[in-house]
Design a protein around this nucleic acid. Structure first.
Lengths: 149, 149
DNA sequence: GCCAAGTCTATGCATGTGCATGGACTTGGG
DNA sequence: CCCAAGTCCATGCACATGCATAGACTTGGC
């Protein structure tokens, strides 16, 4: 049995750190407001980039980015309007929709990805060395499976 | 100079872990939907509880909970409507508003706090021991000041 | 092959969120 | 004492979010 107090303190630190980094990145325009791309939008573009062929089913993507399906559907509307994404019917299942990155979408993802990485390295590297970064990564990953259940 | 790759991986792990824990807590009704209290609302109640006299200026609170001032103002509207909070004029500065926890507000905070702590201990304790919890806490705290700047 | 049940995505609607701004008040210089 | 500039909070407005649900399609039992 672990200490509740310790767990709460760890959660508070985790929570505030994440919130305040997101805020900082937003202030620095790390995502692409000029393309209507914020944190969630980038997460979608990024996840698609890591999918084979830059394509994925809407439902699968919703699970991956931890977003309710209707919210993702609307978010996709906007990305399509921006020309970053395309909807295609799924030949294997006509209920489904496959989302495909456009060239513009890939370009924006790459560009934002660069800025993103630089901002992250800047913010985290300011206070943690490589060993600590690796430790933080491993601790977070250990917790992650618990919540997907 | 720290490794960018490592920093990005740490950030991703941190981000997904936080998001997925928040999601999990919401599913478990850890906050009090019956009183219109969600994550942000609880954060406000909790922060007020830790303030002397259970009272604080609106602006100060907005900084503490990392919320834009107009958003907090509206959030406070709802908490006042629920009888959990009260607005009082600040005698020292008539522009200002002091927020005060009501007895009902304190009660809800205590009750939610208990559920919250239990859920956190459950989620984190499932995969981390005390040493790891302390390490996670310290790593996050080290990063935190960087973002408040 | 048919139908009931299940799955997948989109949309109506109520609500939350943030930005820009307005009105009230305070402060410091002259 | 007065006024210009600054601070503090609330509100108008446009937009994002989430829930419940509808519509389209698929699947498995008969």
């Amino acid at each position: 049995m672990t200490s509740t107090k310790l767990a709460v303190e760890a959660w508070e630190a985790l929570f505030r750190t994440q919130a305040s980094l997101v805020r900082r990145f937003a202030e620095q325009d790390v995502w692409a407001p000029e393309h209507g791309v914020g944190l969630r939008e980038y997460d979608v573009l990024y996840t698609l980039t890591t999918s084979v062929g830059g394509r994925a089913r809407l439902g699968a993507l919703a699970d991956a980015v931890l977003l309710p399906q209707p919210s993702l559907s609307r978010l996709v509307d906007r990305l399509v309007a921006q020309g970053l994404l395309q909807r295609e019917p799924d030949p294997a299942d006509r209920r489904g929709v496959v989302l495909v990155l456009t060239d513009a979408g890939r370009a924006v993802q790459r560009e934002v990805g660069r800025r993103h990485a630089a901002a992250i390295a800047d913010a985290l590297g300011e206070h943690l060395d490589d060993d600590e970064l690796a430790a933080l990564r491993e601790l977070c990953r250990k917790v992650l499976p618990a919540s997907s259940a």
